[in-house]
Nucleic acid binder design. Structure first.
Lengths: 179, 179
DNA sequence: TCTTTCATGTAAATAGTTACATGATTCA
DNA sequence: TGAATCATGTAACTATTTACATGAAAGA
């Protein structure tokens, strides 16, 4: 079985949700996966091309009146199999999440305590904004996708974002008090 | 002021801690920054070269008996200034941390509930191992670097790792119960 | 008229890992 | 004898973003 990168599997997965074109894939990404997976058009279009080349999907161009032509992609059986087999594999290792604030804090001795404090305050504020975004998305899913069988899983991923962000906010507070 | 990437600033910062060669930089990284910043030799050596080219550091080659020659790098005033000015700038935005487990969970509908459960169990276990590593590093810092003025800041970054990892573990538990 | 939305795509640049090459010493 | 540690470095590959190019329609 050929191995693809996770971005390819992400696109493969999105094709199961009814999104069919590069444009709508990007939209769904930005709305629903943005907190743990983010990609640009520069990756989406070449990947869709690759899917067709490797027979994981098929394309057809559809004309729409008043709007540009769009290419609609559909998973093949091989594509669906590839997705499922990836889903069932456990992850190899948790990746290291690079954190610029921690990197700066690590060298905190070369900074004034006021500056460190301001840095943490700024970070905390950004985290709080993020938390609010998560809550907003959650509300939106609960009202617009209440009967969608995917919604359950989407809410699980949001819950993760909320919990870890909250933990980070608490850490900011505690660290600011310790300085 | 020229802008560099964060990896360059990380190396600049490590040069203030007494690590002088590419080899020892890598060692310190692996031991102390590994939970939020990780780089390979393939990045360290070219970056050190760049630092010298841009007059942020100077090199001299020292011979050691019984061991290979080593290059020792030292920050210039310009290098120290560059580091400090970066430290004082607030981060632009919190990066999206890609999470393969969440990506798989997002498409959980195409997987059996047992498989999803196993996936979460596996992730939880990996997180618990990570938490133990953090605790071990913390102990090591408390015993070996008790009077080091940097130690305080190192412990702050570890505390972040512990809190967010713990939150992720709780999420795993809650999600496993919900499935 | 200007901005937004729709829609697809490529080229260049940046970032980063992995694999390789080299070679001495120490320790089991 | 073989592995580990010390030590530096490059080439190839992979992943990804950013900037650009194109162009029509809708709405303010």
């Amino acid at each position: 079985m050929t191995k693809y990168n996770n971005t390819t599997y992400a696109i493969l997965g999105i094709l199961t949700t009814g999104c069919k074109s590069g444009y709508t894939i990007k939209q769904l990404m930005d709305r629903s996966l943005n907190h743990f997976w983010k990609i640009s058009y520069g990756q989406i279009y070449p990947t869709l091309k690759l899917l067709v080349e490797n027979e994981l999907a098929t394309v057809k161009t559809t004309s729409q009146d008043g709007k540009p032509d769009r290419k609609e992609y559909e998973l093949t059986d091989k594509g669906a199999e590839t997705l499922k087999s990836w889903l069932n594999q456990p992850i190899e290792q948790i990746p290291v999440e690079r954190n610029e604030v921690l990197l700066k804090l690590f060298f905190g001795r070369y900074q004034s305590e006021e500056q460190t404090y301001l840095q943490l305050e700024d970070y905390k504020q950004k985290l709080e904004e993020r938390l609010q975004t998560y809550t907003a998305i959650e509300q939106s899913i609960r009202t617009h996708h209440d009967n969608d069988p995917d919604a359950r899983y989407w809410l699980f991923t949001l819950d993760y974002g909320k919990r870890t962000t909250l933990a980070a906010i608490d850490w900011c507070q505690a660290t600011m008090e310790a300085i």
